[in-house]
Design a protein around this nucleic acid. Structure first.
Length: 682
RNA sequence: GGGCCUGUAGCUCAGUUGGUUAGAGCAGGGGACUCAUAAUCCCUUUGUCGGCGGUUCGAGUCCGUCCAGGCCUACCA
């Protein structure tokens, strides 16, 4: 074998703003398969990733949920890592762009740009949300199109007439963050003069097979055919990110520190294992492979190589760009339930099924990949259960006592054919043409099953004279099966592991597929993979729909894209007079005690203070929505003059005001800071 | 408007540097077997290879053009 290659692999850093879904998984599964393949081939390969944690959207999410940014990203990171692990995706290190290692590296890159004289400063005028105190990116502004007058358009362009403009030109702008009208404010930004690297980028993108050809063409026609504009890499405070050391009040734009996160994650890996960081990032013999989606192409094909060049690190060997996922031919949709979270998938289906299906569909072009749910079920069941696993399950038990023959029997050349196919399969894996690899592997299974059929081990079994022949037939079948399991190991590591235990020989390297196993015992056969049932797929889609309904309720409050459903569910009541209204005495009250009520499913027992010694005992149906501990001390709004009512658990002397359909969806009224218990609500 | 990609059996796709009657898997139809997760095996139907024109002894494969679909762009990075 040739000398092992030294290969560093990354997937794009998932943004710490939401859960991993099946769309993300295309990339992580693709990358993980490639990495596992490299390892199986005996190469030294490390797979690194991290959460991308900076930017305005993270600030908003943290604010919305009432926690600090650090708490928010810690929680998301845990969820992401849990989901990846659930799909068998294994990283050498999973970091965060909000790490000290990343900060140090950012400083280093920054200094390189300073030293090269490529940074300049310029004032940028932007819309500013006075209430939230932040500058508004275009997508956070909505208003009326200055050209055609269409309402509710985003800050950069109009859906109706297609006009593009700056957010400052939009008529009646509204911040989608606060709903207020933004003001105009100017702040200094720092720019990298990337045009200085034009020649280098031209050369790098157009040569050396660093990019898929369609991407190289695209860059040539779109960016490299004119001077590159300066890249705005700073954001004024407040911004969740790293403050630029030599420019107080300025923070690195999230896209500046995000790719550096690949290196920070490597640094953490090296610090933990004692490996040498420079062997990975300052070593021309190391291959660096980035797997990304087509949406972030130019960050990785222009800015990132430019950054590495200036800071004198190793340039990527190849940027592997994939398309998006569609489900049943359409964009993933929350309403259709096809926006399936990784977590939800795992509740209903085997992750190996998705790994195999994606492998069977992936090629090395920038093409969208369609998850056709019917095909998914059929393909996984037919190929994996029916053809591959079946080989073992139909023969293993015949040789549980005998083990494998001590010499590999005549199989008509099947095993050798399989061994010879190895290089073509490996080449397909290497080129990320997994679709081709899967096809080639399935051809092997298609040849193996007829062999078993023709030799009829189930009849041999009945004849004591032909036990040797029985053992030989099963030895062949199990070896053909094992050969396939080895080739499939990058995609289906669990099957390979189960095969290892079945035949008592660990699968650890690719070349094992070229030598048959003989004379080893065969363990009791255990199921390796369950068939996918249509009802499980349906249940997964249904659950995704329900999740969406709940999430939509939350999102609506922040985006003003409010549903009409609540009014439909509960139409407006009959008109009343002012005199009727003032009969209701609403008071601010403080929850001084909140406790569970034994035997009650929905009720909490609250003791409310109206100030002084005045208290009321109220039973409120909010048990499913609130924890008693969280309520104590907070202010609520109560109906204070409601006639007391005898309940099973005691007297209730009023009502807490809250909205929502009930159950877990109860939302108590909050009162702004400054209100005092006992004050009347008018 | 510009750029890129795709268009081969009902579906998903293979078709190598142009070379004889265009392939596979799935689905459909018929049969066999019963070891296996109603798995497996055998047989079997279907194509103006998007249209038109050209180069060539010969084109799904090259060139032109048109049609259809997708993606990216339209002076934002």
């Amino acid at each position: 074998m040739a000398d092992p290659r030294k290969i560093l692999v990354t997937s794009a850093l998932p943004y710490a703003n939401g859960p991993i879904h099946i769309g993300h998984l295309v990339e992580y599964i693709q990358t993980d398969i490639w990495v596992k393949f490299q390892k199986l081939r005996g190469n030294e390969c490390i797979y690194l990733c991290a959460d991308d944690t900076h930017g305005t959207a993270i600030m908003m999410s943290a604010q919305r949920t009432g926690c600090t940014e650090e708490e928010w990203i810690a929680r998301i990171s845990d969820e992401h890592q849990r989901d990846f692990a659930g799909f068998g995706i294994e990283f050498e290190n999973y970091g965060s762009t909000n790490s000290p290692e990343n900060y140090e590296l950012c400083k280093q890159f920054w200094q390189s740009f300073r030293d090269a004289g490529l940074i300049r400063q310029e004032a940028v005028t932007q819309l500013f949300d006075d209430e939230k105190g932040i500058f508004l990116a275009d997508r956070f502004v909505r208003g009326t199109c200055p050209k055609c007058g269409a309402e509710e358009q985003y800050g950069d362009s109009c859906d109706q007439c297609g006009a593009t403009y700056s957010a400052r030109e939009i008529v009646n702008p509204v911040s989608t963050l606060s709903g207020t009208m933004p003001s105009v404010k100017t702040a200094d930004h720092l720019f990298i003069q990337i045009e200085e690297l034009h020649g280098f980028l031209e050369e790098w993108t157009q040569s050396g097979d660093h990019l898929q050809s369609e991407i190289a063409n695209y860059l040539k026609g779109h960016f490299l055919n004119e001077p590159l504009r300066d890249w705005d890499v700073s954001r004024p405070q407040p911004y969740f990110g790293f403050e630029i050391p030599d420019a107080p009040g300025h923070f690195w734009f999230v896209w500046f520190d995000a790719p550096i996160g690949y290196m920070a994650s490597t640094k953490q890996y090296c610090d933990r294992t004692g490996d040498d960081f420079n062997q990975w990032w300052k070593n021309p013999d190391t291959e660096i492979h980035h797997f990304i989606g087509k949406d972030i192409t130019y960050f990785h094909t222009l800015f990132w190589p430019a950054m590495l060049k200036v800071a004198e690190f190793t340039l990527p060997t190849k940027i592997h760009i994939h398309g998006f996922l569609t489900v049943d031919g359409r964009k993933m949709s929350k309403r259709d339930g096809t926006f399936v979270k990784a977590e939800t998938f795992l509740k209903h289906l085997n992750p190996a099924a998705l790994r195999y299906y994606y492998a069977a569909k992936l090629n090395n072009r920038v093409e969208d990949l369609d998850l056709n749910l019917k095909e998914f079920t059929a393909k996984v069941n037919t190929d994996l259960v029916g053809k591959v696993v079946n080989l073992a399950s139909r023969t293993a038990k015949f040789v549980e006592d005998l083990g494998l023959s001590t010499e590999y029997p005549d199989d008509g050349g099947l095993f050798n054919q399989g061994a010879e196919a190895g290089e073509a399969i490996a080449a397909a894996y290497e080129n990320c043409d997994f679709n081709r690899a899967m096809r080639l592997i399935m051809e092997l299974a298609d040849r193996a099953n007829p062999f078993v059929e023709n030799r009829e081990p189930w009849n041999l079994r009945k004849d004591p004279e032909r036990q040797q022949e029985l053992q030989d037939v099963c030895t062949v079948a199990l070896n053909l099966f094992r050969q396939i399991a080895i080739y499939l190991q990058p995609v289906l590591p669990e099957i390979a592991e189960k095969t290892s235990s079945l035949l008592g020989d660990p699968i650890t390297y690719w070349e094992q597929a070229a030598t048959p196993l003989t004379g080893t015992p065969v363990a009791k056969f255990e199921h390796m993979m369950k068939r996918i049932e249509e009802k499980d797929v349906d249940a997964m889609i249904d659950e995704s729909k329900e999740e969406n309904a709940a999430a939509a309720a939350e999102a609506n409050t922040t985006q003003y894209n409010d549903s009409a459903q609540p009014l439909i569910d509960e139409p407006l009541a009959e008109e009343i007079t002012f005199d009727e209204f003032v009969k209701i005495d609403l008071r601010v009250a403080r929850v001084v005690k909140a406790e569970h009520v034994e035997e009650a499913n929905k009720l909490l027992k609250l003791t409310l203070s109206l100030g002084g010694d005045e208290t009321r005992q109220v039973f409120a149906g909010i048990k499913k929505a609130y924890n008693p501990e969280d309520l104590e001390g907070r202010l609520v709004v109560m109906v204070a003059n409601l006639a007391p009512r005898k309940m099973r658990f005691g007297m209730s002397e009023g009502m807490i005001t809250a909205a929502g359909p009930g159950g877990e969806d109860v939302f108590m009224l909050n009162i702004d800071e400054g209100a005092q218990p006992g004050q009347r609500v008018h």
